[in-house]
Design a protein around this nucleic acid. Structure first.
Lengths: 198, 198
DNA sequence: CATAAGTAAATAAACGTTTACTTATATTTG
DNA sequence: CAAATATAAGTAAACGTTTATTTACTTATG
């Protein structure tokens, strides 16, 4: 029996993310992807049931999964609150800086109904993505270190600015001077920490 | 000469936003739109040069423009900082609460390269959208009321959480109990204000 | 050599857009 | 002031292309 080619599988994923980043999700087609990856369209269908299946797996495994891995590196729920949030912010910044294509699809998670639905279902089925961070919020709420909000609100207050700054970082790549440096990220992080702590 | 039908033009825009919200930008087609609006595909091309033109005008005029109008209601650059930010947050929350379709396309502004490009060009060409708010940031920086960051960073720190909370608001519509109330919005707003002020 | 991985080419359906024609109305004319 | 006219708005149907997916066949390897 002929074995599956891992390189072809990886090429599909990498090039799909590249096309999504450069041309948008709405301009990714199976035939365009096959041509760019130098394979037959049929080969994609050996690895994925259909286009939806490909997009959902790309989003869940390649983007959310990899980001979760990166964001939790050297993170520990028992960390001091400020230290923990700074760790998570730096991990986010450094990871996406080197994975711009993944960041592009990540952003579609807030817009595309398909990805939104996939994320919600996966969250319910397999327990929460980012569960350690949610637990971290809850611990610090009960220790009365941070204000008492539902986790969804904690996430909005503590995490949404870093994603917005990430966006700014990439837009400044095309402008003469980068204003989003690691220093600015850490100063911004301290702003959200200050706001949240009691 | 037969006059243009304003109702048809408005139907195109309203129904386009509806389809984008319900099925995603990637599933909006000119023929689907025409059928849903009960008009001929040709009629869309009388009002818009092509699909790109339609999407860009939808985004700039119907979404960004209308939001800008709503967000600045009863806002004055000379307001006290906390008062001004609270005004802007409440305006945002109340506007999108009643314009969910517009919010859906707004979110695509962070993902779709087409809309991203359109926004940047429009910002350069016609002066800044949200210029009064940017001026408000700068004034409060020079008055040493808030920390000194570039406007892009101010926007990320002060505005991105309300958009994230807006997203949560809509997701909770499908769940048994709404956790994103106006009270929670105002408490969250106070968190970002506290973080930002010196 | 059995078998799943892979290909090239084809399928029907849907796509954005256009063609050829009809309709409604502001203006001109009688 | 009403009928005629000019003209852009509108329609139904079609255009060629691209879409997602499949068929019929070839290839590589346990």
């Amino acid at each position: 029996m002929r074995p599956k080619s891992i390189e072809k599988e990886q090429a599909i994923r990498t090039i799909a993310l590249k096309i999504i980043h450069e041309e948008g999700l709405e301009n990714l087609s199976m035939q365009k992807l096959a041509k760019a990856a130098n394979i037959s369209p049929r080969t994609i269908y050996i690895k994925y049931a259909d286009k939806e299946d490909l997009l959902i797996k790309l989003f869940i495994d390649e983007v959310l999964g990899e980001y979760e891995r990166a964001v939790l590196e050297n993170f520990d729920e028992k960390m001091d609150f400020a230290e923990g949030i700074r760790r998570v912010w730096l991990n986010t910044f450094r990871y996406f800086k080197n994975n711009r294509h993944a960041f592009a699809l990540m952003q579609y998670g807030n817009s595309s109904p398909l990805l939104n639905k996939a994320f919600k279902e996966r969250n319910i089925q397999e327990g929460q993505f980012f569960a350690p961070i949610h637990k971290f919020y809850k611990t610090n709420i009960s220790k009365k270190i941070i204000k008492n909000f539902p986790v969804e609100v904690c996430r909005a207050l503590l995490m949404s600015p870093i994603f917005n700054l990430m966006n700014e970082y990439f837009e400044h790549l095309d402008r003469p001077k980068q204003i989003i440096t690691e220093k600015v990220i850490l100063e911004s992080c301290d702003v959200v920490i200050k706001g949240m702590t009691i």
